[in-house]
Simulated scan of single mutants.
Amino acid sequence: MTDPAPGAVLRGAVDLSSLRNRPQPPVAGDGVPAPASDGASASVPSLVIDVTDETFAQVLELSRVVPIVVDLWAEWCGPCKQLSPILEKVVLELGGRLVLAKVDVDANPQLSQAFRAQSIPLVVALVAGQPVPMFTGAVPEQQVREVFAQLLQLAAQQGVTGTAAVSGDPAPDAPAEPELPPLHAEAFDAIEAGDYARAVNAYEQALAENPRDADARAGLGQVRLLARVQDADLQAVRDAAAAEPRAVDAQFAAADLDMTGGHVEDAFDRLLDLFGALDEPERAPVRERLLELFALVGDADPRVIRARGRLASLLF
């Protein structure tokens, strides 16, 4: 692709067309407002809002001014109760640069279906009306901060740089920088600048100092993936993978695009097919890449569980 922004390959993984233009009920004072007409700011009742099947079209419009983080959750979901407070905390710290839209999947089946919420918590972003897959499952606070930094960078590249102000509140001050370990802070700054190579180096140094640093390991996997797709030509990658089904590098590149496009199962199946087709001496790099991608999605995700089972059957 010519645009190095990760959003160019993340877009379109979810079909929201059925929710865009439905008639909207009158919006009460505590409802979801439409964005301001100046394109630079929007007045909202809160930076954390509850969204329903009926009000979601207004959230799509709001995403043309300020990026929206959508948290799909349910009352019975234990990991949701761990993740939601983290999402709210980080969004509030950003002082209007993001809005958090919470969707109860049990009460809003159309949104649950539109976002293909096979497991929750599921976190998706909206930028200029387009969905951007983010992550599934409860993740550490540091990982949330890093993913949100990537989202803000993507939104800026798409021209979505407005802010949200709570009705009746003064304009938000610039958010305070979170206190991070020095190498994590360096990686965070590099991600915001789009310098993925520097972010990878910072995380690698953090892991060298502390191999048990789970946040650094998670961040390293995500940034490595973004770095690999940064300058990818989508059509060229697809053509190469189709032409050389046993070429490891070609299949790796296609699997990376599958992952960043939200097609997780396609990425796993592609690499598992490759693993099964190769001779034993050639398999090690494929297994390592699969384990790296499994870690990005999360061990508890059903797609990872299924893929691990298939990998085990191929190994034994």
Rank of each mutant, 00 (worst) to 15 (best):
A242M: 01
T52H: 07
E177Y: 01
D258I: 00
D195K: 10
L271K: 03
Q150W: 04
G194A: 08
D106R: 10
D258C: 04
V66K: 06
D249F: 07
L180K: 05
R145L: 12
A117I: 12
D269R: 04
L271N: 06
A117L: 07
R287M: 14
G12R: 11
R116E: 14
Q82H: 08
V160K: 08
Q130N: 03
L122I: 04
A74R: 05
L234V: 15
V123A: 04
L278F: 12
T163Y: 05
P26L: 14
A34T: 11
V90D: 03
E54R: 14
V144N: 11
A8F: 06
P170F: 10
R246I: 01
L83S: 09
V69E: 01
G7S: 12
D301Y: 07
A227H: 09
S43C: 00
A128M: 05
F188R: 10
A208F: 12
V127C: 05
D195G: 08
F188A: 05
A190E: 04
V200W: 02
A128D: 15
A202F: 12
L72T: 01
L272F: 03
S63T: 08
S43N: 02
V70H: 05
Q113H: 10
R238L: 10
G168I: 12
A255Y: 05
G129F: 12
A190W: 10
L293W: 00
G29N: 11
A101C: 14
V91W: 02
L151M: 06
V66T: 06
Q157P: 00
L311A: 08
L315A: 15
R289Y: 08
D279M: 01
R310N: 11
P133R: 01
A34Q: 07
S46G: 08
A227C: 00
A164Q: 09
R217I: 10
D106W: 03
F252N: 04
D215R: 03
P285C: 04
P178M: 04
V44R: 08
A155L: 11
D3C: 03
